[in-house]
Every structure is written in structure tokens, then in C-alpha cells.
Design a protein around this nucleic acid. Structure first.
Length: 487
RNA sequence: GGCCCGUUAGUCAAGCGGUCAAGACAUCGCCCUUUCACGGCGAAGGCAGGGGUUCGAUUCCCCUACGGGUCACCA
């Protein structure tokens, strides 16, 4: 009945914060399931009790929620295969391991950590376990167990031959069994290792597609051997190419903000992040790049997954972010900006929607707002008058002083200080004086902003500042220019 | 070091034997324009190298180089 339903799972361990690589894996798992009308399951892999980190679980839920990856089953919402937390399924693993022991496919190993370390040192850096306990006699095992000697359970790997598995992305991969160590199934603390718990759970939870990063490619033969030992059906493997930092190494902290929450803190939008990482390792059949999550579900296809690793490029992310900012409705954009506006300009009321409108296609991230609008709060009177000179506008210190002196009385007569009236006044003046718009606008904008580059033009800035403040700033500019002339 | 995987411009990436080798980001130029940005147009830039196979290789095979991953009582 459920045989044809695609089931994927995102199985993070709560040992840190949500990394971009993990998120991308979760995204693809989600897309693979949803594009086939299947189920996306969340399972928490907390078998390493020493590495649990407070808050890590919340980060997982918060991130999935923020980007809209809704799971169909999971610890918080339950499901037909509950529980979805590995520490609550310990009995399953132990029972499985016992069964393998009984069938002669696994064994107790009493080797101490010290012995293992010595082995490694003696045999060079890359020596594996020597299978010392593989052939202990039944009595010996019984005695040690009875005496309470700590032990782990290891799987007996075949000593000869090869193991082949098939990956949807990478094709058939074969390794010599001699490469495979007798892997630990159950640790001495009674918890299962990752590999073992994974196989048991994926089978019991009827996972059909095992999707994960390609760093697991080399441990996949071990999975197959486990599935075979149990007689379980082998799931479809889909390994994903890694995401690397700009230096070509696996993405990590030293590459800057690569945690989901870091990116959010830097002003990136969840939709932009999702859109970008969807394209890191996958491409559609056409040249389209902008996709909502729903559109990704529609278009996603495992055929488009690539094999080679991708370098995380902040430039491209920035472009996506700017695109999302620009195509947002004005209201949505305003509501996103408002907190930053009010924080940057605390004392006065501005025309917030006008401010938002001049910022909307100039922003890359929300975090750029403060520095872009700080001049509205206060004029830095120490700006250099050199910026009044502009070659293309043909403005000079003299012409600027002239324009400012002439426009001041005109602006004083403006009763209704609105964008339209200000615009008419300025343009009207330029026409009347037979000068190009920029010849007048440039010095006015410089005077009211003190900056050579501003979001918006003279008209917008005057409108935002209000009559009194605008005239005050123009007056200041005029005085600066006059003082310079008299030197 | 062994094993595994990969290699098209600075980056993402299409290509699945015959193409002037798409497209996007970044870069540069021009246009638009009261600065910047947006938008429009354009430029520069690539099949890692060497052998095969083939009438013909970016595409298939081998070798080399480079890059990455993995070799835990971590996931």
C-alpha cells in the first residue's frame, strides 16, 4: 500500500547550528519527496550523547520552519513510525545487533581504547582494527561479559571479494572488502553508531531514498553489507556533491557566516537562501534561476543533480537577495525595513514609504539600511566641498554657490512641501534659468546630504527632510562655498 | 599513504559524438539618468594535460596532473 510512496528523511544530529550544507541536504530531501508526492521525515540522531548541544534542536526546528520545509513526520508531530528520536529507540538497535551476533555476523569486542590507539600507532596512521576479538571462543565471551568487561559489538566484514552499490548520481561504485573494517555497531555506552542506527531506522521507517552529502560515499558499502546481513531491501542512494568555501575546502566557520542563522543575521532572506542553495549542485533543464519553494517542487529532478562540488559564492547569493527584495510588494518591503528605519532615525517621523521606495532597488541586504540613510538623521557638516565639482554635470564651486544662492529664496516660498511641488519648483527653475537639470540638482543634493552618492535624488531627499531642515542644510552649504571663495 | 569521487571562464552551470561551446553572478564599456541603483545593450573570459577509439571528440576509454572526500566507541 505504501510501497510506491517516496519517503526521504532529514536526519541531523543536534550537535551544533544549522549549517548551509545541512540545509541544502534537507532541501533536496524535501524536494525529492515532494516532487514525487511523497513524505519528508525529520529524525533526530542523538546517539552521541557527549556532543549534544543546548539549543541545537531549536535551531533545527527554527530553520526548517523559516524556510518552509515542513516535515510530515517527526519528533514534534509524531507519525506512524514514532518515536523519531534515536535515543528513544535504543532497544531496536540492540535487538538488531544481538540478532546479528546470533547469526554469526557480528561479535563482541573487548579491546580497550588504549589497545586500539596502540594498534594505530604501531601500524602507521591508517591502520585499522586487527579483528582481534573476531574469533574469541564462546566461553571467553561469556566469561568477559559476566565479569562486566566493557565491550562493543562489531560486524564481521567479508575478508575477500568486493562490494558494489549503486548511486543515483554517481553510478555504480565498487570497493574491495579488504578496505572495510569490522565496523562498530553498538558502542560501549550501549548507543548505536551512526551508520548502524541509520540502517535500522531507515528500514523501519520505510525510507525509500537515502539522500545525503557525498562525504558518505565511502561508507556506503558498509551500509549495503548491513542491509544484506539483515536481509533488508536496499534503498535508493542519492549522494549530493559537497558545498565548498571560496578556498576550495569544505564549507566551515572560517569561511565566514555559513550558518543559516548567520546569513539571516547578515540580512539575507530565507527565500533567497533557499533559491540560491537549490542551484548549488542542481540545475533545471532551462536557464531559469528564480524559483519559489513551490516552483522548485514542480521542477526538481534528480537528473539535474551534478557530481562535482560547488563553491559557495556570496556574490551570487547577494544577487538573489537583491532580486527578492526588488520583486517584493511595496508593503512587504516597507514592513521589513521599518524596524531598521526607526532605529536609524529615532527622533523624527519621516515619510517611511517614500524612503522605502527609494531604497527598494538599491539594497542588496537589509543590513545596508543604516549606512545608507544615516545622512538623513544628521548632516555631517565637515564634508569636503570638492564634491560639489562634477565634470559631467559641469558644476564648479562657483556654479554651485550660484545655484544654491538662487534656489534658496525660491524654496522658501514653497507652501506645500510635497514631492510634486518640490519637483516642479526645481525643474521649473532649471528651465527658467536655462541650465541642465543636473547643473542645479547636483549642488542641491550635495548640500542636503553632504554626500556625493545617495539613495534617491535631490527631490526625494528634500521631501524626506522637510522644508526647515532642507533650507538649513542648503544654507550651510552656501556658507561653506562662500567661505571657500573668500579664502 | 590506501581507497573512492570529481575536473567546461574568477564562481554557479548547460552540454549527454558533429554547437559560432547556452545562460547567470562578478568584472569592464556604452545607453538611460539630478548622484547611486534599477533597467537596456555590448565586451572580455572556458572544455586541466597527454594518449587512444572514431570520418569527427568538450562529450567514450586509458594515463598523468590537480582538487575534494574518507579511512573514529563523530555524525
Amino acid at each position: 500500500m505504501l510501497n510506491n510512496v517516496v519517503r526521504t528523511r532529514f536526519a541531523p544530529s543536534p550537535t551544533g547550528f544549522m549549517h548551509i550544507g545541512n540545509l541544502r541536504t534537507a532541501l533536496y530531501e524535501y524536494l525529492i519527496a515532494k516532487s514525487a508526492g511523497g513524505k519528508f521525515i525529520l529524525r533526530i540522531e542523538d546517539t552521541d550523547q557527549d556532543r549534544l548541544v543546548d539549543g541545537a534542536l531549536d535551531a533545527i526546528y527554527d530553520t526548517l520552519n523559516a524556510v518552509g520545509l515542513r516535515h510530515d513526520e517527526g519528533p514534534d508531530i509524531g507519525g506512524p513510525y514514532a518515536p523519531y528520536v534515536q535515543s528513544e529507540r535504543k532497544d531496536d538497535y540492540l535487538a538488531g545487533a544481538q540478532r546479528l551476533i546470533q547469526e554469526g555476523k557480528a561479535y563482541h569486542c573487548f579491546c580497550t581504547t588504549e589497545r586500539l590507539v596502540e594498534l594505530k600507532e604501531a601500524g602507521g596512521d591508517h591502520a585499522g582494527y586487527d579483528r582481534h576479538c573476531r574469533n574469541l571462543s564462546a566461553e571467553e565471551v561469556k566469561d568477559k561479559l559476566a565479569a562486566g568487561v566493557p565491550s562493543v559489538i562489531r560486524q564481521k566484514m567479508p575478508l575477500t571479494g568486493t562490494t558494489t552499490f549503486s548511486d543515483t548520481v554517481y553510478g555504480d561504485i565498487t570497493v574491495d572488502n579488504t578496505e572495510l573494517e569490522d565496523q562498530i555497531l553498538i558502542k560501549s555506552d550501549g548507543f548505536p553508531t551512526y551508520n548502524f542506527a541509520n540502517v535500522i531506522d531507515d528500514h523501519k521507517m520505510a525510507i525509500t531514498h537515502v539522500v545525503r552529502g557525498s562525504e558518505y560515499l565511502s561508507s556506503t558499502p558498509k551500509y549495503n553489507l548491513l542491509y544484506e546481513a539483515f536481509g533488508y531491501e536496499i534503498p535508493r542512494y542519492i549522494h549530493l556533491p559537497l558545498i565548498l568555501g571560496e578556498d576550495g575546502h569544505k564549507l566551515s566557520k572560517r569561511h565566514g557566516a555559513t550558518g543559516f542563522s548567520d546569513l539571516i543575521a547578515e540580512g539575507y532572506l530565507p527565500e533567497a537562501i533557499i533559491n540560491y542553495i537549490a542551484l548549488l549542485g542542481w540545475s533545471p533543464t532551462d536557464t531559469r534561476e528564480l524559483f519559489s519553494l513551490a516552483e522548485l517542487i514542480e521542477r526538481f529532478d534528480v537528473d539535474g543533480i551534478s557530481k562535482s562540488p560547488a563553491i559557495f559564492d556570496f556574490n551570487k547569493l547577494k544577487w538573489f537577495n537583491a532580486e527578492y527584495l526588488r520583486k517584493m510588494t511595496e508593503d512587504k518591503f516597507l514592513s521589513l525595513c521599518l524596524p531598521a528605519f526607526k532605529q536609524a532615525l529615532p527622533d523624527r517621523e519621516f515619510d517611511w514609504s517614500l524612503l522605502a521606495s527609494i531604497l527598494q532597488n538599491r539594497l542588496t541586504t537589509l543590513n545596508e539600511i543604516p549606512e545608507m540613510i544615516d545622512f538623513l538623521k544628521q548632516l555631517d557638516e565637515n564634508y569636503s566641498i570638492e564634491i560639489y565639482k562634477h565634470k559631467k554635470m559641469k558644476t564648479t564651486l562657483e556654479s554651485s554657490l550660484d545655484m544654491l544662492t538662487q534656489i534658496l529664496p525660491l524654496l522658501e516660498t514653497v507652501e506645500e512641501w510635497t514631492r510634486t511641488v518640490i519637483h516642479e519648483t526645481l525643474i521649473g527653475a532649471a528651465v527658467a534659468w536655462e541650465v541642465k537639470n543636473g547643473y542645479l540638482m547636483w549642488p542641491v543634493r550635495i548640500a542636503v546630504s553632504g554626500k556625493s552618492v545617495t539613495p534617491g535624488g535631490a527631490v526625494e531627499i528634500l521631501t524626506l527632510l522637510g522644508k526647515q531642515e532642507s533650507l538649513r542644510r542648503i544654507e550651510i552649504g552656501r556658507n561653506k562655498l562662500m567661505a571657500a571663495r573668500n579664502d
